[in-house]
Structures are given as C-alpha cells and as structure tokens.
Design a protein around this nucleic acid. Structure first.
Lengths: 192, 192
DNA sequence: ACCTGAACACCGTTCAAGT
DNA sequence: ACCTGAACACCGTTCAAGT
C-alpha cells in the first residue's frame, strides 16, 4: 500500500527558491534542499529528475510571477505610461528576487531552460503595449529594444556593476523617454 | 635551492579560460585546470589564492581585452558612428567569449570582483564619446543608458533568450539611432 | 509509492612531507 | 620555492533494500 508522501514538488521548489536567494545558485544543492525538508537527498529524485530539472521548476515559477507583475503594470494609462510601469514592475521583481532573476535570464544548459510558452507569456504585455505605438511590422524589433534596455539596467543594477555612481533607475526611465521621443510618440498630457 | 616553476600564473589563467569557454563556468575546477597543466591540484595554490581568485584573474584579463576593443572602436568618425562601432565591438567580444562575458557582467561574490579601475578603463571610451554629444552633467546618465542598452542586447543574445526571432543585432543598432534621435543629435552626413 | 543508507565519482582546500 | 599524496568535508546521482 502506498505511503503518504512526506514532501511534495511544491515543497521542494519552495525550499530551493529560499536557498537560491539566501545562498546563491551554487548554494542550491540537492543535499541541502533535502536537509531543509527533513529528508534524505535521494528522496528528491521522486519529485524532480535532476538538479537542473529542479532549477527549471524554480525558473518557471519565477517567470510566471514576473508575468503577473507585467500584466498588472498595463492596467491603465497611455502606452507611454504603461511602458514606464512595465519597466518599474520588471525592476521591482528582479530587485526582490535577484538570484532568481539572474538564473532566469542568464545562460543555462538546455535541461534547465523554461518552456518557450512561459517565457512568451511574460513578454506578452510588453508586445501588446508596443503594438499600440508602432506599426505591426515593427512590434517585435521595438519590443526587443525596450526589453534589452530594461533588462540591461536591471541586470547591471542587481549585479552591482554600475560602479561610477549616478542614479541607474532614474537613467532607465530617462532612456524610456528618449526611445519614445525617438519613435515620435507624443503623449496626451491628460493620460499621464 | 629554488626549483624552476613548472607552471606560471599566465598558464593557469589560460587553462582556466579555455575550460571556461569549452565547459562553462562550472567546468572550471581546480582539479581539471591542474590536470590540463600536468600538475596536481594543490600546486595551483602557489599561483592563485583560491578558485574565486583564479576567476577574478580571468575576469580581469577579459575586461582588458574588452577595453582594447572599445578603444579601437573610437578611432574615427562622428560620435554617432563611434557609438555604433562601440556597440559592434562590445557584441563582438561577447559573441567570441560568451561564457567569459557572462562571468564578467554577472553577479559574483566579492572575492571574484575585478578592480574598479579595470572596469572603469573598459567604459572610458564610451564616456568619452558620450561626452561629445551631451553636456557634462548628463554624461554619466546617458553613458549608463547606452551601456545598459548594448549590454542588454548582448547578454540576451548570448544567453539565447530572444526566442521570438527577429534580428536582435539589427534591433540594437536601431535602438542606438532611436536614442540619438531622442537626444536630438543630428549627424553630419559626411562623417558617417 | 516513497524513503533510506551505502556507494561511486566527483569537488575545493589544507597540510605534512619531499626536493 | 614549488610540488606531491593523503586527507577532510563536501557535491550529484544510482541502487539495493526496506515499509
């Protein structure tokens, strides 16, 4: 007769995520995750296929959270205001989960890569917003521009690579405005 | 009487860098570096303090190479042309050394972080170029904007995160032009 | 079905011992 | 001064054995 499982996939993912932010990606070891769950390391293999599979689960959950924040950021306002809100929500997620964000966006082995659908869902709000200010044929390229800009600031901020000072988050918003100006987007003052 | 050293710091760094690109950051183990040099692992500790110290050496050498490419990119042309050339050189370095680039720009423990001076030297060509198109008080912020943009494209390209297609390098150059347009920079056609 | 302990092939690092 | 082998405390993963 079957036993009651002592741990669940969700519990494994939660323990791994906790470890990720407190000890970094290298600190997420099968043995330490198991230790925190009061179980032996081999037990984890009944719930995940490997360490990479575990990290893939953590990444997928993180992407869905990022997506939720992006969706929430587009609820109101002009396209320009929405782009600023999207940038804020993006940076906020990464600042709250720096190690997770680095894991999501960094290079990784194929086995660790999240489904394309989950990644696509996270970028849908941006594509939709950009679709309101440029013709269809330019949406992908301009969305990539905004994503690269915001990801660039975000990843350099959380990696503490802006070592000359300044105010990087403010510069990020300046950059969004510069791009909007370059695109010839004129905002209706009432909607901002 | 002293022995002739069988390995040098340079040899250790070269072996580590080779391993970094062929097997990834996790593949750079003290034991494998030593194996490639025909020496035992503990011998490495006569040339580096720790694995983090070894990686710091690799990062520092990489930053100097990146700097050389950035310096070379600013030899001629208008500021706008120079910014495009800087972006190209930056992406070219990262494409040729993706694992090294990720190591340089990613988050890392304090012990692995390169000297601020070396990092500053790599960004000097960009700051100098931006200084030609914006007033002194805006140089830092606008330089951060260009850096974030180019780093954003570069890191997402080498991490294979642009999964919706398009032509990211072309979009990067479009973005540079959008920023220049947003800044109101009008290029002299003869210099481009 | 789920969990365990033992085992295997790895790590980074330390250290006494050699030359 | 530089290198070694042995050792310590770790890894991910497999597997026979238990319930």
């Amino acid at each position: 007769m079957p036993h009651n499982p002592r741990i669940s996939l969700d519990a494994v993912l939660a323990a791994a995520r906790d470890l990720l932010e407190t000890r970094g990606a290298e600190g997420v070891t099968m043995r330490e995750v198991a230790r925190r769950l009061g179980v032996s390391a081999p037990s984890l293999y009944f719930h995940v296929e490997s360490r990479d599979d575990l990290l893939r689960g953590v990444i997928t959950a993180g992407l869905r959270e990022l997506e939720a924040g992006q969706v929430a950021a587009t609820t109101a306002g002009s396209p320009g205001a929405a782009l600023h809100a999207l940038a804020d929500a993006y940076l906020a997620f990464a600042s709250a989960n720096p190690a997770l964000y680095s894991l999501i966006m960094g290079p990784c082995p194929e086995e660790r890569m999240a489904d394309g659908e989950v990644a696509a869902a996270a970028s849908a709000p941006l594509l939709r917003t950009v679709g309101e200010i440029v013709p269809p044929g330019r949406v992908l390229a301009i969305s990539q521009v905004f994503w690269a800009l915001v990801h660039g600031f975000t990843s350099l901020i959380i990696a503490e690579q802006f070592r000359l000072g300044g105010d990087p988050p403010a510069a990020m918003h300046e950059a969004v405005d510069l791009l909007l100006a370059g695109l010839g987007v004129v905002e209706d003052p009432r909607s901002r």
